[in-house]
Design a binder for these strands. Structure first.
Lengths: 158, 158
DNA sequence: CGTTTTCCCATGTTATCCCATGATGTCCCG
DNA sequence: CGGGACATCATGGGATAACATGGGAAAACG
């Protein structure tokens, strides 16, 4: 499988370990890493995650900027300094660092949501709320879809 | 791991020793040096650090400048003259020279921030302030990435 | 010689490895 | 079509290794 797909809620044990869903695991491994790269979203209270390929793309984009420019340093300290490469153990589990758990309000359970080339990790109830809201707004935004259908595509989702 | 990633705050002991984060250590060793190269930033009160690879890259960048220009001399005096190759001891610790600590205002704790090919060393509170600013500006700077990218947006779409 | 640096060891904490269990799902064969 | 053997997976626990940190002793330096 080549992209992160589906939704899974797993428990976090006393040691802070949580199983990365097996299907996500195989995506990361197919990209050449026995682990995933995670960082706090600056869009909301959840964690962004991806395989090494997406993470390397970010690195490469940053390297196009001048190596000592303030812009590069600021972007990198947010995108890389706040990120963590989480290798899974022999059973496919990862440990979410304290800062990431705090950012997402995660305590004893985590919801993994596949989004294609990347995925998100949510506190389960927070995700439910987000999803309900998204569903509600989708109705209102439905018009937008029609109206943009004839326009060139934007950056967004996949 | 091939690039410096994540953020770690370690203590400086009475002898001036501080552990280089284990993950940074393995990056440097993978580049062929049991140590790191550090020099004062000319952008602010923090220390720049890297493995040997990026350090050699800096040399190359300097060599492209006019050899007798004052600009080149000034850059070189900071990037090379003020730089130090800090080898880690048998436990993976380094000693930050007095001038570097003074430049960054570091006393008893140091925050290591991975930025990909290089990293920075900050006084913890100073970094917190910088990070708050960086987070604020990251969205604006995000355009820099998008415009240079043939790739999907980084911030996390929604 | 006294000061600083380097090496070695001790310790507590945290992460990692290894094995066990139960639950679920898959496949094969009757 | 049904049932059971087997694989996969999430989860838990104990043992082990890695790491950050502190301190002492030996070595280098001026």
């Amino acid at each position: 499988m080549e992209s992160f797909r589906g939704r899974f809620t797993n428990k976090i044990d006393a040691k802070g370990r949580v199983s990365l869903p097996a299907k996500f695991r195989s995506v990361a491994i197919a990209q050449g890493l026995s682990g995933v790269v995670c960082f706090p979203s600056f869009q909301g209270a959840f964690i962004e995650g991806s395989g090494p390929r997406f993470a390397e793309n970010i690195d490469r984009m940053l390297q196009r900027l001048d190596p000592f420019s303030p812009e590069r340093d600021m972007l990198a300290s947010v995108l890389i300094g706040d990120s963590a490469e989480l290798m899974f153990d022999s059973d496919g589990r990862i440990i979410l660092p304290e800062e990431l758990r705090a950012h997402a309000g995660i305590t004893d359970e985590a919801t993994f949501v596949g989004l294609g080339e990347k995925f998100q990790i949510w506190e389960p109830k927070a995700f439910e709320a987000f999803r309900a809201e998204a569903l509600e707004k989708a109705r209102a935004y439905g018009d937008l879809l029609k109206s943009t259908a004839t326009l060139p595509p934007v950056g967004g989702a996949q």
